[in-house]
């Protein structure tokens, strides 16, 4: 980016704060390179790893925080990760029987170390609309979300009721989207473009989101995982509209977010390259019965280094066997719970 353009960014940021221009227009300050067939070039490896999450944590009251506040929180996060990264004491023996013996230590996580910066602002949530940084569930939407979520957290009767991540059908949470959200690890995406297509290879689980540029959506009875995506260009912005979402994917949960995506939602994603090293990824979710309003988010996707490795989940999925077998063992030995 040249100096003149760099100098423009804070000004554009200030304009944004006053609501004079929309984010996509701000991005026009930078002109993306072109592919050999003339489309704006979004290709490469990108990551959305960040401390920022879909919804705003309760302890943070505003969308934007100061650099000093961000530094304080990032230091606290680093300390937590370090504390969680101590080697296991080999003499400690088996942990006490409990519902939750704990999960990964920090070595296995790759959740980023910084709050995301969008248009020069340090952001506390991806959601920018509504302003409270939360999914605007209607009463029905909240009810459906609770029902789907409760089943996933309390029912172990068979594979179908477990989460898609545990079943290795798609990645944890909404990693593959849409909307594509950051999770605890494997927050990597490869974009490759060819005439008529933009394809996003999602690291977890080796999913190719094949976005057709133009054309018609699938028949209503075909509802793939990650939905059916059709894109078009608006200037330098790739606009992707996804419908035909799989009802089985309606509730997705990760440590970092829980989201109920009503199956008849329309998700619109906007990819705008705002610098050689960053794509501004915007999304909007619309469904009139589950939400009180359309809701929108903004996520920076930063260039990252490869290569991206294979996340073969199902092939080594001992977890689902153990989850179900563990539940059966508890049913047959009710005293196991009583001795805790």
């Amino acid at each position: 980016m040249n100096r003149a353009k760099q100098a423009l960014l804070p000004i554009l940021g200030a304009l944004l704060l006053t609501g004079v221009v929309a984010p996509a227009q701000a991005a026009a300050a930078y002109r993306a390179p072109r592919t050999s067939f003339g489309d704006p070039d979004l290709q490469g490896l990108w990551t959305n790893a960040s401390i920022t999450t879909l919804e705003r944590p309760d302890n943070l009251k505003s969308l934007v925080i100061t650099p000093a506040e961000a530094a304080r929180l990032e230091t606290a996060n680093k300390a937590w990760l370090a504390a969680n990264d101590r080697p296991t004491d080999p003499k400690a023996g088996a942990p006490p029987v409990s519902d939750d013996p704990g999960g990964y230590n920090s070595f296995w996580l790759d959740l980023g170390s910084k709050y995301a910066v969008v248009n020069g602002e340090i952001r506390t949530s991806w959601i920018v609309d509504p302003a409270n940084g939360h999914v605007p569930y209607s009463e029905k939407g909240r009810h459906d979300a609770m029902a789907a979520g409760m089943r996933q957290f309390t029912n172990f009767d068979g594979p179908e009721v477990r989460s898609l991540g545990e079943r290795c059908i798609v990645g944890y949470g909404s990693s593959g989207g849409p909307p594509m959200l950051n999770v605890l690890y494997n927050n990597n995406y490869q974009i490759v473009q060819s005439p008529g297509y933009v394809t996003i290879v999602v690291e977890m689980n080796h999913d190719a989101r094949i976005i057709r540029l133009g054309g018609a959506h699938l028949p209503a009875n075909i509802r793939p995982w990650m939905g059916d995506s059709i894109g078009h260009w608006e200037g330098d912005t790739l606009v992707v509209e996804t419908t035909n979402l799989n009802p089985g994917q309606a509730f997705t949960a990760d440590i970092r977010h829980r989201i109920y995506l009503a199956p008849d939602s329309k998700v619109t994603e906007r990819f705008t390259r705002v610098s050689p090293a960053e794509i501004l990824y915007e999304f909007k979710v619309e469904e009139p019965t589950a939400y009180t309003q359309a809701w929108r988010g903004e996520i920076p996707m930063r260039a990252t280094k490869g290569p991206m490795y294979e996340y073969a989940c199902h092939e080594g999925n001992y977890a689902l066997t153990d989850i179900l077998a563990g539940a059966r063992a508890q049913e047959h030995k009710p005293q196991a719970r009583a001795t805790q």
Binding site: T35, Q43, Q190, V192, S194, Y197, V201
Partner: peptide
């Protein structure tokens, strides 16, 4: 096959 100048997937 998705083929561009930079990549083949």
């Amino acid at each position: 096959i998705f083929q561009s100048t930079e990549a083949i997937v």
